[in-house]
């Protein structure tokens, strides 16, 4: 197990590369989801407001 994490002495480089990649991909997906949700709610409330006015 320890041998696996050691990556033949390249642990720092290998795990940092995978860590940075995972963090960036997750960040982009999560922030996209969040903005999508907010925008959908805004569209919905704008529609409700317009309906309310008529």
């Amino acid at each position: 197990m320890a041998e696996f994490f050691d990556m033949g002495g390249y642990a720092l480089y290998v795990w940092t590369a995978y860590g940075v990649s995972a963090a960036a991909l997750v960040w982009l997906a999560v922030s996209t989801r969040k903005q999508l949700k907010e925008s959908a709610e805004a569209v919905e409330s704008a529609r409700a407001r317009r309906k309310g006015r008529v």
């Binding site: 999508l36 959908a40 569209v43």
Partner: peptide, 12 residues
């Protein structure tokens, strides 16, 4: 996801 987001933004 981002296409749907941009379509919503355009609507707004």
């Amino acid at each position: 996801w981002r296409m749907k987001l941009e379509i919503n933004r355009r609507k707004l």
